[in-house]
């Protein structure tokens, strides 16, 4: 079942085209990664989803309802964590969590206290004295403790330490196990790699790539480090081999995943002593799109 659908959304601020024909579809129970650098349009997209900005063109539908017209109705089933959490400075952290939970109706106090405990959060301080990470915890606790069906997380871990990031990842997995849907916007690729089923990459307001992680990996290259008994002459000319660096019998290069078979067979002829391969990181994929043309040319 489709939980969230963006249909050719465009947004203009004056002369600035912030989003151009962005489409996206989230199915129930999946974790969808939304990747892009700062200023690419991730937060604008999310604000349109939340009904805070009105799309210039296109339609955003959540749970079968219009994101702009039925915002409050839709949000009963949503939980949102912004990247920068701003809270009322003169309320305590605990009060803010309660207020946010209550705005969506009733909530379980037990669950709320559990999450306060898990994030090791001190709810008695005035919000103005919390650090960025602690303010993020407020929004995360209010999200995980709610009965939402869709979690919209906009760079939710940028202020968390690694331990807390781990708790966060457990939370997201728990949500998925409960059959709920997650939209995770991020530029921390390891996080996306660990959690997401499918990803979409946005650049300058346009979606430039989308699919499952496996789909996207086909587009990338393995990093190979190897040592052979004899020097493999002509390796550089072999198709699918890029950026070869050699020091005698030790060398490293990048290999296109679809040419892997040929390359291994070729190397075997020279007596492989040692071979290490690193799987393609989303990082590489990301860089390929972001470094613009120079990398594209390298690939060809």
């Amino acid at each position: 079942m489709t939980v969230l659908q963006l249909d050719r959304i465009s947004k203009r601020f004056g002369n600035f085209q912030a989003l151009n024909q962005v489409s996206m579809e989230l199915k129930e129970g999946e974790i969808y990664g939304f990747i892009g650098p700062n200023g690419a349009g991730k937060s604008t997209t999310i604000r349109i989803l939340l009904g805070m900005l009105k799309a210039t063109e296109g339609r955003a539908v959540l749970f079968g309802k219009d994101a702009w017209k039925d915002a409050a109705e839709i949000h009963k089933r949503c939980a949102y964590v912004p990247g920068d959490v701003y809270v009322w400075p003169n309320l305590t952290g605990g009060e803010v969590i309660d207020v946010l939970l209550k705005m969506n109706g009733s909530y379980s106090k037990k669950k709320r206290d559990e999450w306060v405990e898990r994030f090791q959060f001190d709810p008695t301080k005035k919000a103005r004295s919390y650090s960025k990470g602690n303010r993020q915890k407020i929004a995360l606790i209010a999200a995980f403790a709610s009965e939402a069906d869709l979690f919209i997380l906009d760079e939710p871990t940028s202020g968390l330490d690694p331990l807390m990031e781990h708790i966060f990842q457990q939370g997201v997995r728990g949500v998925k196990e409960a059959g709920k849907t997650v939209l995770l916007s991020s530029h921390i690729l390891s996080e996306v790699e660990k959690l997401c089923d499918r990803v979409a990459i946005i650049r300058r307001g346009e979606i430039i790539e989308r699919g499952t992680l496996d789909d996207l990996r086909h587009l990338t290259r393995m990093q190979i480090q190897a040592e052979t008994r004899e020097v493999p002459e002509g390796l550089a000319k072999l198709s699918g081999v890029h950026q070869l660096e050699e020091t005698g019998k030790q060398f490293s290069f990048q290999a296109d995943t679809d040419h892997m078979e040929g390359i291994i067979n070729y190397l075997n002829k020279y007596g492989v002593r040692k071979i290490e391969s690193t799987p393609p990181m989303l990082e590489d994929l990301f860089m390929r799109h972001y470094e613009g043309k120079s990398v594209e040319e390298n690939v060809q």
Partner: peptide, 10 residues
């Protein structure tokens, strides 16, 4: 940036 928190709720 604090109305965002409320409007993202119901």
């Amino acid at each position: 940036n604090r109305t965002e928190l409320l409007f993202s709720r119901a």
